[in-house]
Design a protein around this nucleic acid. Sequence first.
DNA 1: TGTCGCAATGTAAGCCTTTACATTCCGGCA
DNA 2: TGCCGGAATGTAAAGGCTTACATTGCGACA
Lengths: 342, 342
Amino acid sequence: MNSIRTTPTLHDVAIQSGVSTATVSRCLNFPEQVSDKTREKVMRAVDALGYSPNFGARVMASQRTNTIGAIIPTMENAVFARGIQAFQEELNAHGYTLLVASSSYRADLEEQQVRSLVARGADALLLIGHDRDPSIYEFLNAQKVPCLVTWAFDASAGRPSVGFDNRLAMHNMAKVVLNHGHRKLALISADVAANDRARARLDGMRDALAEAGLDAGALAVIETPYGIDSGARAFEQLMQAPDRPTAVFCGNDVLAVGAVGKAREMGLGVPDDVSIIGFDDIELARVAYPKLTTVHVPHREMGRRAARALVDTLKTGEPIEPQELAADLRLRESHGPVPKGR
Amino acid sequence: MNSIRTTPTLHDVAIQSGVSTATVSRCLNFPEQVSDKTREKVMRAVDALGYSPNFGARVMASQRTNTIGAIIPTMENAVFARGIQAFQEELNAHGYTLLVASSSYRADLEEQQVRSLVARGADALLLIGHDRDPSIYEFLNAQKVPCLVTWAFDASAGRPSVGFDNRLAMHNMAKVVLNHGHRKLALISADVAANDRARARLDGMRDALAEAGLDAGALAVIETPYGIDSGARAFEQLMQAPDRPTAVFCGNDVLAVGAVGKAREMGLGVPDDVSIIGFDDIELARVAYPKLTTVHVPHREMGRRAARALVDTLKTGEPIEPQELAADLRLRESHGPVPKGR
DNA sequence: TGTCGCAATGTAAGCCTTTACATTCCGGCA
DNA sequence: TGCCGGAATGTAAAGGCTTACATTGCGACA
């Protein structure tokens, strides 16, 4: 009909089907409010024109986007990729769409992403860990954008979280290793100052050491960026020290897998010469040889629950109920008793 | 000032800084068009009020979202996660935002996601592989949403792609293995009917077999879903057959890693008793023991180039230039000569 | 000093949908 | 037949921004 080919609008559909725009809108959003006859007529016009509603206009008129934003440190780590996948699936099931951004573990980038997601109309935000500039929380507050922290749990944070107790989980794992007789431990960790999960995990190890009556000297700590190669290098450095550890803990499985590979290169048996412990329990952990002893992070469950919590709060307006999940141990093949004579 | 706390609008900023809304808008979008003095004044007001533009309104007024959509089969496979990460980084660098959806390898879900992304105003779309109902391409065409296929390259498809030749890559790999004397091959593949990449890879193997003068009987094919355990099960099934293959190709590294694990369980040496070949070259491949011989998929490069191509076409209006990338072989430790006596 | 031209700024229309409120329709009941 | 009430539908405003076009301001030049 129209010689100038342009994408059809609600108005076009209304004309084509001989009703008002309000009726067309209702057909699409509240079909039960419209008589069968009219609805059918309208739907035929929608199909005929290939109409699809304009998101921007809809957002503007209804004042909500049905979009939830999430900022993760990186998609490269499977543990985040999978957590976010579960998050997305649950969101979709409730009619919400996910907008993801990754911060590359950089606070400045993260802040920028928060603003960008809010500007794009995210109705709510999912963030990893509690640590960030208070001004960000103030901003979200002022914009009335609910925000949920995950991957960590802190009942005292004054803001809801759905996660697990990083400190306790690491504490438990360290206890197991200490019970195997190890007395010289090491930790290959992410940047402790900038990362509250890393800090909590380190604290967990210290808790276990203190409990066992050992002093801080029994723990060597190396901070390093994320990556297999970083893990390998850090491990090498540890093993070249005069007083090498008998058990090396890693802040995540990727670092641990790097350590395991380097151990093989160096001719060190795992766990016969050195125990290596991971954190996260991603696929990599089961694939590594030997299979990694690690802390299981319930990433999928966290993703699902976080999604539900956020959807609930948006629908009901009630504040989010914090939820603590368990992170249990997966004692596999990469840990063992202290080597003889050490 | 305002007792009713509401998020500030352009208008509020305009009043606060004593200029018109147009000037504020220009300050934000084309700062060079505004005098230094005015810009400074406006920016102060923006900061003071904590203004951030309303996305919906902006979209509606400007008729573009600066958002590009991508639909991948799953975020769970690192090869997609990383490709998309690179895609996103490049997009961000050009001021675009990424909207991802995952289809779980299901055509019906994918179609739904295409519509949803377009409805949400995606200016362009990135899709994996060529195979899909023609009506989807018609829809995108009608909506004038440019779309780019990646992870595959087909100059004859009549639609642009940025990818590599799956068939040729697999052909090359199979040639190497055949040159090692293998005559009984197997392939653990994704669903061939529903997945053009899987089909191309299978065809590539057949090409190599034909070239070597072998008939179809020399190749056993098992189709299976994605996953480590699926790979393990398929491998077991192959090795229990009366006439077991001496080289097992896998449609991706995840399946291959499952196969390697099962081989170890079965007491089979890799590559002494059986060669196992992957595809993708994700981290897993280097971590597996033995290290996986595999086809390197240039996922990052594909992501980056796809992003650039899409941004270019949106900015210039020129059609997208197809680009073929190389997918070369990574001959590592999991392949070897045929076992003696076979 | 008066003009010209360009840079800076202002005015107001338009983008498309949702939704509060108004109107119409229609069957049922007195 | 007339009236009532609720369901169905219509009217029109509002939502915040961009941008074409109009206006103003100002320095340079004659």
